[in-house]
Design a protein around this nucleic acid. Structure first.
Lengths: 207, 207
DNA sequence: GTCATCATGTAAGCCGTTACATGATTGC
DNA sequence: GCAATCATGTAACGGCTTACATGATGAC
């Protein structure tokens, strides 16, 4: 019932309203999801989240998406409003907004240790880390760090296997370097996190 | 019909006979497959490959798998032979051997540009690259290189997006470093490949 | 007026995991 | 003799992609 895509969609909607078509590009551009997620996943996910009460369809806000850094003319016109009873705005776009319930679920899902952190799950969460409290962020980072240390030991052991030919060995060594790079990143994030949390006891947000 | 797991299994069997249970650990240790592939995938895959005539079940060779670097006592005894008509050896292990047909399919699959190269697909192929001719290896590397350059441009563009918070940006920048590391690896492999192919015109194998 | 792109949705199917069912071998 | 590990297989289910079906909008 906990789907990674749900977290990603809710995370995007935390920032502002989106319609389905737009979500795909945002997954790539703002959350760093590598492969283009297909619409065959996105639309059913939105429908499910709506049924579940985590998001709701709203009147389409005038588009300011593509270019222009937002600051131009706000709200050019409410436009010939909704087509049917549901939230279909101009041009058939169906714009979704996260509900209060969705917000609560989102933060729980984001911090949840259940959905275990492979590379993709982790970098998705990290891209949304500004919605976590500092201590939850540190927890997330430390869990990831432990996983990576384990993986590093495995892959180093493999690369010392004497029976490997030069290509297989090269793959193993490269995998080790990749994990080391990840670890350096995590360690860097952790130290930043800890020096930022110096000041007394109130939580600070990113940027 | 072209399954990544098939390539991996055939690749392992190119080297020597294996039974299913063993294949799982070999995928990790020799081919660098990160997550443990479940038996629920492996056994059906072997059955499919057998039906297809790419592999065949043979009498179990006496185990020399776990420890001991092979050179001890060869063939300790044929043992109370096969249980039923099929290739069930001692202790119920079902040992598979690649057929001539399987060998042919394997090299085709390994070089095949159809199964497009994501990170995992590529490093699997590279771990098996000793079975490719030098020119096929170079082709594989160059295709991967082109993909990575594209990906690098994307991820760099994303990381310059001014609207990202510091966490999302950090994710993007780290992704870029990862791709750069991959590229450096590929370039290094390519230059090795090219300097190795200096000598006249006959193909050399790895190690 | 037509083509590319934007936009939403449904259905079939692939590929993999989890869970279940079963049993042999080895170490203690 | 009992537990841990080795060993093989099947069935259900889940999530994601592909392909299909449909239509609006904007550019030329």
């Amino acid at each position: 019932m906990i789907r990674v895509l749900d977290i990603a969609i809710l995370g995007l909607l935390m920032d502002r309203d989106h319609h389905g078509y737009e979500i795909r590009s945002q997954l790539r551009d703002r959350l760093g999801v590598s492969a283009n997620v297909s619409f065959g996943s996105i639309y059913p996910a939105l429908a499910r989240l709506e049924r579940h009460g985590s998001v709701e369809a709203v009147a389409a806000d005038v588009r300011l998406s593509s270019l222009s850094t937002g600051s131009l003319s706000g709200e050019r016109a409410a436009m010939r409003t909704l087509r049917s009873g549901t939230g279909l705005g101009r041009r058939g776009r169906k714009v979704y907004r996260i509900t209060e319930r969705g917000r609560q679920e989102f933060v729980e899902l984001l911090a949840n240790p259940a959905t275990l952190d492979d590379a993709k799950g982790f970098s998705l969460r990290m891209a949304l880390a500004k919605y976590l409290t500092p201590s939850l962020r540190v927890g997330l980072l430390e869990r990831r760090r432990a996983d990576l240390l384990e993986r590093l030991a495995e892959v180093r052991a493999s690369s010392h296997n004497a029976e490997l030919d030069s290509y297989a060995r090269s793959v193993m060594e490269h995998a080790a370097r990749g994990v080391e790079l990840d670890l350096a990143w995590i360690d860097n994030l952790l130290s930043t996190e800890r020096s930022d949390t110096n000041p007394p006891s109130f939580a600070r947000d990113a940027k």
